[in-house]
């Protein structure tokens, strides 16, 4: 599918809490073809500071609109958060290779989504696609594991519940749900044969993804991991955002950001 460079109008910009924001764009061309796991590359101003675009994953698509979910963590996201409804931004998208949805609609599939911190962002779009037009029978409901440092930083739990997903929470300080890492929770759950997932989709910090890869490779179920890397071009030209795989370096912006856990070399 063809990506395009567009001037997109902000149709909504809402602060969710603290430094977390939703931004929505009118983007029929992108909304039509975007797949979960893909991202858009945003130029936040016309100046040389910041110089490069910022890649942000697609959080959701509704009709002609696309939504992103971002945290203000630096200069570029600060500028982005100051943009108001009606303003235009130069955006390229949709970019990258997203999650392979496979035969998720078969009755026996037990899918599990594992999110760490902002990793919820692309997984929300995925959950929407996976539950689309599907009867959420008790035995094949999607399980979502969400990890956060504290209860305060927990993201999107209610949104996943609204889609009919089973949500399990892990916090580093034990302020909500399981006390520990989300990957420890995954480890515990996957020790029980009955809750062994048939497929895992994960997004989060690198150490978390590595732990997910270890668990899934040991237990023999496939995991698709969405990686993050600094990008300069976002379109596969600069070869800056590579990750090591069994077949050599691959571009996170082109062959990724989603990779099969078995292909990655940590």
């Amino acid at each position: 599918m063809k990506a395009c460079q567009l001037k997109l109008k902000i149709s909504a910009q809402v602060r969710i809490k603290d430094n977390y924001w939703h931004c929505e764009f009118s983007a029929p061309q992108i909304a039509k073809i975007a797949l979960p796991g893909q991202f858009i590359d945003i130029r936040v101003n016309d100046l040389c500071e910041p110089l490069l675009r910022r890649p942000i994953s697609i959080h959701g698509v509704s009709r002609a609109k696309i939504k992103i979910f971002y945290a203000v963590v630096g200069k570029a996201t600060e500028i982005l958060a100051r943009k108001r409804t009606g303003e235009y931004l130069d955006i390229i998208g949709p970019l990258g290779s997203g999650f392979a949805l496979g035969k998720q609609k078969t009755v026996n599939s037990k899918q599990m989504l594992v999110a760490g911190g902002m990793g919820v962002a692309p997984l929300m779009f995925l959950a929407e696609k996976l539950t689309e037009g599907r009867k959420q029978r008790a035995e094949n409901r999607i399980t979502v594991l969400i990890g956060a440092k504290t209860k305060k930083q927990l993201l999107c739990a209610d949104d996943f519940k609204k889609l009919g997903c089973i949500v399990k929470i892990a916090t580093d300080d034990g302020s909500q749900g399981f006390h520990g890492k989300v990957t420890d929770l995954l480890h515990n759950l996957s020790s029980d044969f009955r809750s062994l997932p048939s497929a895992i989709y994960a997004c989060g910090p690198k150490p978390m993804l590595q732990a997910v890869a270890d668990i899934s490779n040991q237990r023999g179920f496939p995991a698709q991991l969405s990686l993050e890397e600094h990008m300069s071009c976002g379109i596969g030209a600069c070869l800056g955002c590579v990750v090591k795989t069994q077949a050599g370096f691959k571009r996170v912006c082109k062959e990724g950001p989603v990779f099969n856990s078995r292909d990655l070399v940590w």
Binding site: L52, E229, H230, C238, L239, V243, F249
Partner: peptide, 23 residues
């Protein structure tokens, strides 16, 4: 050529650094 390990690029003031290593 396989090129250099990541990170290969970073942004600087009005510029960027790269060391792709001729992949």
């Amino acid at each position: 050529r396989r090129g250099n390990p990541a990170p290969r690029t970073c942004e600087t003031s009005a510029g960027m650094l790269n060391s792709i290593g001729l992949e």
